[in-house]
Design a protein around this nucleic acid. Structure first.
Length: 620
DNA sequence: TTAGGGTTAG
């Protein structure tokens, strides 16, 4: 041991002496030889960042060392990393050739994982010019064996894709194609995924078609990535066309592909199409899996169709598919949404007994359910429970709790949570602001809500559809239709999307001002833009027409609702009954009263006073 | 050594 140490010291001093004696005259080859000698005899550890020999190092000398066949690859990697770590020589930094020289050595030794890591660090290094043409020509000159050439380009293709450098990945694909290389489908899937990740759906589809044209052997994997990207954008028709087209080419969809379609139709609320896909799966012999059931249960749950969700859950169990934590969480969420807290907790016990571990999402669903019914103490107990299990609180849980307190008009508690949230380093996001604003509105503090929403941008949080809709709603309730319209116009300028609720807020504003002309105009506009009027739209319009004594208009809308699959609620009936009563059509008003009782709705005071009033009107 | 999932605001 002592001898090695002695040797090392001697070598080092030699290195220093010889280089210091006449540094400028040393050729790159001499520098490289000296470094190589040191590396061979005593390894990388003997090198000092301050060694003056190293200060003579340039790109050419480094290349000579890294490609020296007398050195082991391992030693070259150490030397490479040593130089990377040593920030002291500002004059030398690895260039792209150094990276590729080393990568080629690793390739020769079939150490592909190590090669890939270095390639990734090159691609991510901002100081290197990793343009495809430059890398490709270097690959050309560094690869001594022909098999390496194609494999290295393939790796480059994947690395670009995985680093989200889609443009470069596509360029690499084109280059590989142009020199006649066969391209592996699996590498292409990385590129498709990268495009999908960055929401470049059209490019993903375009690339897929290029794969087809380039005779890449395509499997259901690539198809499914594109189908899912299209589905998530709501382009289900195009997705189905693609599936059919690929079917003609012999690529059949599998359960994953169908799941994407089912999820998309569920999100759209198109249960008929969901059934058609399920039937198609049966015909094709494709068996639903646990994810299919999760999509179904979640889809039904979020539309409040809890009985359907339960039916699917039972069916899943009967087919022998084991429920996992996702299934339970979705179903718990469904029960919580309709206020069925008891059933939700039963399921929670069931999953625990079955050895499944609840996640933050599971707790989130339960906490949200408790907050909805105002059981804030129980919600806080659950918070303690989850923390004792080592599950961290996240932004969503905080926002949920804050909303719970807001709904109870306990704004101080909500505010305390916001402070705690920030103290914990969690991000106060657009949900937090919208929730707080909604709470302030409920507590009749809409001026503060306005100020809060208008200050969001300065605090670095971008307003979204809900923010703008809330603002519009505040102005409408104040009767300030000019300001409400201004926000509505600004949304388009800011690129914030409208929603049915946005239109509802404005329509309600105009209806309350008895400006039915503008209210009707907006209703037409929303349908033209593809936003379906819902029970709120209809109720606002019915109310507006009724107040103006235009009962026939109101009745027309009222009768239209079931045709469009819309369930009337207490407020809808109240508005219609009030309209009929005022017009002295007492019999019809009472008939509707019976109807709403039959539908299981509980009339409120306004319904009774309308009905009583109708007797007077009719009597006079 | 490639594809699909669950919680929040109007």
């Amino acid at each position: 041991m002592a001898t090695i140490q002695k040797q090392r010291t001697k070598l080092l001093s030699n290195l220093r002496l010889s280089s210091e004696s006449n540094p400028s005259c040393r050729s790159n080859q001499e520098v490289a030889d000296q470094i190589s000698k040191t590396l061979i005899s005593s390894g990388c550890n003997s090198l000092q960042p301050t060694s003056s020999l190293l200060s003579n190092l340039d790109s050419e000398a480094a290349h000579l060392v890294l490609s020296n066949p007398a050195l082991k690859t391992r030693t070259c990697v150490d030397f490479f990393n040593f130089l990377n770590r040593s920030q002291t020589f500002a004059s030398y930094k690895h260039d792209l050739r150094a990276y590729l020289t080393l990568i080629c050595r690793l390739f020769k030794d079939r150490r592909f994982a190590a090669a890939k890591n270095i390639l990734i660090s090159a691609v991510l290094n901002e100081h290197l010019n990793c343009r495809v043409s430059i890398v490709a020509s270097l690959v050309e000159s560094c690869c001594t064996e022909s098999w390496m050439h194609g494999k290295l380009l393939d790796m480059l293709f994947r690395v670009y894709a995985e680093s989200n450098k889609c443009e470069e990945a596509l360029e690499t694909f084109d280059y590989m194609k142009s020199i006649g290389l066969n391209i592996d489908e699996r590498s292409c899937t990385f590129c498709l995924l990268a495009l999908k990740r960055s929401d470049q759906v059209d490019s993903a589809l375009g690339f897929f078609l290029r794969m087809l044209k380039s005779d890449v052997k395509i499997s259901v994997f690539s198809l499914t990535i594109v189908v899912d990207a299209l589905c998530k954008r709501g382009d289900i028709t195009r997705a189905k066309e693609l599936i059919e087209e690929m079917g003609r080419r012999g690529v059949e969809p599998n359960v994953v592909t169908y799941n994407s379609l089912i999820d998309a139709y569920l999100k759209r609320g198109d249960f008929q199409q969901v059934n058609e896909i399920l039937n198609l799966m049966v015909r094709k012999g494709v068996v639903p899996n646990v994810r299919t059931y999760t999509f179904l249960i979640d889809g039904f749950s979020s539309s409040g169709k809890i009985h359907e969700a339960e039916r699917v859950f039972k069916e899943m169990k009967s087919t022998g598919v084991e429920a996992d934590i996702y299934v339970y969480t979705s179903l718990i969420g469904g029960h919580c949404r309709v206020g069925n807290i008891r059933k939700a907790f039963q399921l929670f016990d069931e999953l625990t007994e079955r050895g499944l571990s609840p996640t933050a999402h599971t707790y989130g669903s339960l906490i949200s359910g408790l907050c909805k019914v105002g059981q804030m103490n129980a919600a806080m107990t659950l918070i303690n429970d989850m923390q004792s299990k080592g599950i961290d609180l996240n932004e969503v849980i905080f926002n949920t709790l804050m909303d719970g307190y807001c709904k109870q008009k306990m704004m101080d508690e909500a505010l305390k949570l916001q402070v705690l949230m920030e103290k914990k380093g969690l991000v106060v996001d657009v949900f937090t602001y919208n929730t707080m604003a909604s709470g302030l509105c409920k507590s009749n503090r809409s001026n503060e809500a306005k100020t809060l929403l208008l200050s969001m941008t300065e605090r670095g949080v971008s307003p979204n559809t809900v923010t703008c809709t809330t603002l519009i709603d505040i102005y409408c309730k104040e009767g300030d239709m000019v300001e409400a319209r201004r926000v509505f116009r600004d949304m388009e300028k800011m690129g914030v999307e409208y929603s049915t609720v946005t239109y509802n807020a404005l329509i309600d504003g105009y209806s309350k001002k008895e400006n039915m002309k503008d209210a009707n105009k907006l209703r037409d506009e929303m349908e033209e833009r593809g936003f379906m009027p819902d029970v709120y739209t209809y109720t606002s319009l019915i109310h507006g027409h009724s107040v103006q004594g235009k009962v026939e208009e109101a009745l027309k809308l009222f009768n239209e609702m079931p045709e469009r699959g819309l369930q009337r609620n207490v407020v809808t009936y109240a508005a219609m009954i009030s309209g009929l009563s005022k017009a002295g059509r007492s019999d019809e008003a009472f008939r509707l009263y019976d109807e709403m009782i039959e539908a299981g709705l509980k009339p409120d005071d306004s319904v009774y006073s309308s009905l009583v009033g109708s007797l007077h009107t009719a009597g006079s």
